[in-house]
Every structure is written in structure tokens, then in C-alpha cells.
Amino acid sequence: MRAKRRNRVIFVSSLIASLSIAFIFIVLAMNENIDFYYTPSDLTSSKIIDKDSLRIGGLVQEDSIKMSKDSLKTNFLVTDLENSIEVYYEGILPNLFKENSGVIARGFYDYSNGIFYAKEILAKHDENYIPKEVKKALVNDS
């Protein structure tokens, strides 16, 4: 009975050990290509990301949104506070799209002129939840 249980303990611990090693390998492998989006610094650095369709994410730079009056064309700057990239987009923007707020754009990056042509814009929400009245008070104070 004792020997049997010892064998089971060995079985379970070797299973857990191999799972942990598998976990490390999975995480290391995923680090290469699991990121949902690239940052502007990733694109402007010398490393060329050669993809027809990719996503960039960051904050919409303050005072950078320019909307066309008679069409759905928009352009704005996406920044990671170090580098920024100009994004061109034609279409409907999500409700949460605004200055200094998170955004993810999917599309094509033209290395020759440094412009990102977006086909889809997603808004990214952060982890902060603030009531409207509190936010108003905070803005008024500052």
C-alpha cells in the first residue's frame, strides 16, 4: 500500500514538473507573437515588421484628431509617449475614441512615408472606473 502511494506521488509530481516546463516553453514561444498589437516605438525602431495586416496600439495624442467635414475620413497620432505614428482611417469610430485614451488600429504600415492606413479602429478601456460626478470634480479642481 505504501509503495503504491509512493508511486502515485512520483507520478503526480513528475506530471506537475513536466507541466511546469511545458508552461515555461509555451510562454517563451508566445512572447514572440502573442502581442495583440505593436507600439509605435516597435514600428519606428529599425526592426521592420513585414506584415500586410498588423495592429498598433497606444494613446490618441492630444490635439491631433483631424476629422473631415464631409466624409468619414479621420487622421490622428497614436503615441506611446516616446514615438508617435500618424494614422489615416475612413469609417465609424467607437464611442470611447477620444484624446488621451487608448486605441488599437488594424491596418497597413507604409514604411516609405511613415503613415499607418487603418481598416479598423478599436477603443481600449483602462482599468479605472470613476463616477461622472467625481471626474467632473477632479477636472474642476485641476
Binding site: I34, D35, Y37, I104, H125, E127, N128, Y129, P131
Partner: peptide, 24 residues
């Protein structure tokens, strides 16, 4: 926390919460 995701990171952690108390 490790990767860039569309989903935001955790609001409630051991060190506190980034949700206002009235909502929390």
C-alpha cells in the same frame, strides 16, 4: 500583464482597487 491585450489589466489587486468605492 505580460502581453499587449485589448482586455484591460486587473482593476482589483492585492494592493488595492482602481474602481471607485461607490462602484466597488
Amino acid at each position: 500583464e505580460w502581453w499587449n491585450t485589448l482586455h484591460q489589466s486587473a482593476s482589483i489587486t492585492l494592493s488595492g482597487s482602481s474602481i471607485d468605492n461607490e462602484m466597488l
